[in-house]
């Protein structure tokens, strides 16, 4: 009779684990172990470490409570989880916008000890300036455009997976990403044309020390 005792051997798919978890709730912990890290990273990138703690936890609690509604997808449970996480971010839209605006308002970069020559410093300053404008542009995007674009750029979901995550058609995904990229491109390249070079703000030796 010992043959019936479970022995770990084959990795179950997400869909199999989800199906099992409907009858045996504890199975769902496997979904947590597999996906908590990436979901947390995505949320932390969007709303910051502190807010991500709660949102990541909520994502899995909500997913557990709704597990019987999960429809299997070839990409596994990942798009579904990112969809839940993204909706939670939308509920905390103000936190995300605040984070982005704070980045956009940061004062122009000063040279640091790592900048061994002027060219390197200018490169870094330009990058910082670009990031500030990017943050401002992201904050100005509508929620729908920002969510779609960031699932593509930061969660590495493809168009099909995004359509599952957000419950929108493939065409809508393509259209949103295209529009969002156009907006960002215009803003960033406008900045490049008038790229700020803050040589005057290069710190004195005392400041460096």
């Amino acid at each position: 009779m010992m043959e019936s005792v479970p022995v770990a051997s084959v990795r179950l798919t997400d869909a199999q684990v989800m199906a099992l978890s409907v009858a045996d709730a504890a199975e769902f912990t496997e979904i947590f172990e597999r996906h908590f890290g990436p979901i947390f990273a995505y949320l932390a990138r969007r709303v910051g470490f502190s807010a991500a703690e709660d949102l990541a936890s909520q994502t899995f609690v909500i997913a557990f409570e709704r597990r019987s509604t999960y429809l299997p997808h070839p990409s596994g449970v990942r798009p579904w989880l990112y969809g839940i996480a993204t909706r939670l971010v939308s509920n905390h839209r103000r936190s995300e916008i605040r984070e982005l605006r704070a980045t956009a308002r940061q004062r122009p970069v000063n040279a640091g000890p790592q900048d061994t020559d002027v060219e390197q410093f200018l490169e870094r300053a330009a990058a910082e300036s670009t990031y500030q404008e990017l943050a401002s542009a992201l904050a100005d995007l509508s929620d729908d455009l920002r969510n779609t674009l960031l699932l593509f750029a930061w969660a590495d979901l493809n168009y099909k997976e995004i359509s599952v995550a957000l419950g929108i058609s493939l065409g809508t995904v393509g259209s949103r990403i295209s529009r969002a990229r156009q907006i960002l491109s215009r803003r960033l390249n406008r900045v490049e044309d008038s790229a700020p070079v803050h040589l005057a703000e290069t710190p004195s030796k005392e400041e460096e020390q």
């Binding site: 990273a41 990138r45 960002l184 491109s185 960033l188």
Partner: peptide, 17 residues
Amino acid sequence: IDELDTLQRFRAQPYEA
């Protein structure tokens, strides 16, 4: 500037829980 490339480098530090 490539907007997608910039976006992917923005806040790209590893966020480990």
